[in-house]
Write a protein that binds this DNA or RNA. Structure first.
Length: 400
DNA sequence: TTGGGG
């Protein structure tokens, strides 16, 4: 077994390695015939630079899938290569093999995943024990980096890192999967098109089909749940992405705006670092959310300084009711409920006043409401509809 | 073969 610090002295050689996996790229199709994931590995002999291990296998499910932070990978017969100034290892399916082990201290040496040709030797076991013991004292890289931003600070066409919780994954159209991520903050409100004739194109969500209740019911009610698109190069992401429910630092996410909604994209440079619940950056996210709730309640971060909103909303009959978010509405378990929300009006249908009344004299107006957690349609019906709409227009155009 | 990144 070769210590990682010696790898640089053995270019073109095939070697056996063992180390802690501290980062992995999300498996995706390569430009060749295989799926690829790139692991970053450290051991007692070398933590910086982390050794890259480029793994190529034609079945995405057979690529190594890291379950927990500090898990151990044993690599047999990987070839050492050099690219520019970097030395790295290449896993070739025709002659390499791997096994993944739980990194927690134990006397269990059965791997939780292996490549087909892997064979564990008795002589491997002391190396596994040694790494498990070393992990007890080694401080793994925390979630801090110069590129980390919170969802509250994202900008269009910018690559950044996010410390966030992965809430779920779902196929939203053929060959397109979405990760749902959350850090407890709100994405910045976007300016939207106020041309009346174009308002009806306003969408409620990125995805073209309603999400399963099983996904939505896991969404927190405060803070934006951001959609991150994985295109078809990532395959059937839901079947091979195993970090659901975990806090992670995702590196190199790209942000764009579509239909007035934020969405992220996984790129070929996107990578995942699993974080502990006690990681400093994770603890900071949780602390910020607790402080936010105790200071301002369930109010959009962007409205903290917009007193006009509050003035208008006190015209409602439910002044004593605490503010809720639109996600509170969407995840409400009963059939009926009264809520008091701070929202933006992003569209009105019909867009022409002459169309507000049906031939029978009934008014039926649909508005699209938005807060950082969701968009919904709200129907204004009956005799009060025009007055309700007047209040909403005051909100929309700042007439209050 | 593929990949490699601030």
């Amino acid at each position: 077994m070769m210590p990682l610090r010696d790898v640089k002295d053995h270019p073109k050689r095939k070697v056996n390695l063992i180390g802690i996996v501290v980062e992995f790229s999300i498996p995706r199709m390569s430009e060749g015939t295989d799926y690829c994931t790139i692991l970053k590995v450290v051991d007692r002999s070398q933590q910086s630079p982390e050794l890259s291990v480029n793994v190529f296998i034609d079945d995405v499910h057979q690529l190594p899938h890291i379950r927990s932070r500090r898990d151990i990978i044993l690599l047999s017969c990987v070839r050492i290569e050099r690219h520019k100034q970097d030395v790295y290892a290449v896993f070739n399916k025709s002659f390499s093999s791997f096994a993944l082990f739980d990194g927690k201290c134990s006397s269990v040496f059965s791997p939780y995943q292996t490549s087909p040709a892997f064979c564990l030797l008795d002589s491997d076991k002391p190396f596994i024990t040694s790494l498990r013991n070393w992990c007890l004292t080694f401080q793994l890289d925390p979630g801090i980096s110069p590129y980390v931003v919170s969802l509250n600070d994202i900008k269009e066409r910018e690559y950044v890192d996010l410390v966030c919780k992965v809430l779920g994954v779902c196929e939203v159209s053929s060959n397109e999967w979405v990760l749902f991520i959350w850090d407890g903050t709100d994405v910045p409100p976007l300016s939207f098109n106020t041309k009346l004739e174009e308002q009806n194109s306003t969408r409620l969500q990125i995805e073209s089909v309603p999400l399963p209740t099983s996904i939505i019911s896991n969404f927190p009610c405060v803070g934006t749940v951001l959609r991150v698109i994985a295109d078809q190069a990532f395959g059937k992401l839901g079947y091979h992405f195993h970090s659901i429910g975990q806090w992670v630092r995702i590196r190199n996410i790209l942000f764009e705006v579509d239909s007035g909604l934020w969405k992220g994209f996984l790129t070929c440079a996107s990578k995942v670092r699993l974080l502990s619940e006690n990681d400093n950056s994770v603890a900071e996210c949780k602390r910020n959310l607790t402080e936010r709730l105790s200071r301002s309640g369930r109010v959009p971060m962007s409205s903290y300084h917009v007193s006009n909103f509050i003035t208008v909303l006190t015209l409602t009959d439910y002044e004593s009711t605490k503010f809720a978010t639109l996600m509170d509405l969407l995840t409400f378990s009963k059939d009926k409920g009264r809520f008091r929300c701070i929202v933006r009006v992003v569209a009105i249908c019909p867009s022409q006043v002459k169309d507000f009344w049906s031939p029978a004299g009934l008014s039926r107006i649909r508005v699209t409401l938005e807060d950082p957690t969701a968009r919904i349609h709200a129907l204004l019906c009956g005799e009060d509809a025009v007055m309700q709409l007047y209040i909403l227009l005051m909100l929309k155009f700042g007439l209050a």
